[in-house]
Design a protein around this nucleic acid. Structure first.
Lengths: 112, 112
DNA sequence: TTATAATATCGTAAAATTACGATAAGTTGC
DNA sequence: GCAACTTATCGTAATTTTACGATATTATAA
């Protein structure tokens, strides 16, 4: 599962999680899905399928990527699955990005 | 160049740029390269090649991705190229992520 | 001009991602 | 039990990404 990076040292656990989140969000469709989930608070897979005009299996696959990255949470609601944005995940993302590379290019002061 | 998203509406210009940055940073090697550039303020391609144990052409390709995402800047210094983190780019990234999905899961208060 | 040095680009093979249809798995109601 | 409904997973083709060696390209020095 964990591939060796051809670098002098590995990323920390937190850095690895952050990079995985960034990778998941780097896909425009998943990026847009997150926005849709935020707008609607929560929704079921079928809503997103209707929203995207993608095949149901494709949407389910994208949701799996977002879920495994810890960006969304899914709960079974009867025959459907109800997805919502993971508050913990989004907080982690914003916190980590906010303090990322602090010695360089501070976003408030511009000093770095 | 611009692919149509199979979604009800496209991403804005800023959202598209943000997604491209996230995609570039989603690769662990490029993520690590950014850290290395931040640690060393700036460095030439050869430094990163020695740092990573990747082929020179591969490193050059990754640097191109980071540069096209607006995350780093390269300046020709004699026969070499001197790279540094783009202050504007990193500021954009942090600012955009900071205010992304504001109606959901505020990182400070947790209300949303 | 020639040689050296550093990097970018080209061509290509391997790996990963993306998307789809088909199918399986689960829940609800009869 | 069965049928209807929703979603997840499987198998697979097309595309993209990644990595490499080989080859330009550009700058410096003699």
């Amino acid at each position: 599962m964990t591939k060796d990076l051809p670098l002098l040292h590995e990323l920390s656990r937190e850095e690895t999680r952050l990079a995985a989140m960034l990778k998941a969000l780097g896909n425009p469709i998943r990026f847009r899905m997150m926005q849709y989930l935020a707008e609607n608070q929560m929704c079921i897979t079928g809503d997103i399928v209707a929203f995207t005009s993608l095949a149901q299996s494709t949407v389910s696959q994208h949701l799996k990527v977002l879920r495994e990255a810890g960006l969304i949470e899914g709960e079974i609601e009867g025959p459907a699955t109800c997805y919502c944005i993971s508050s913990e995940g989004l907080t982690f993302l914003k916190t980590q990005i906010g303090k990322w590379l602090p010695d360089c290019c501070n976003p408030v002061t511009g000093i770095g």
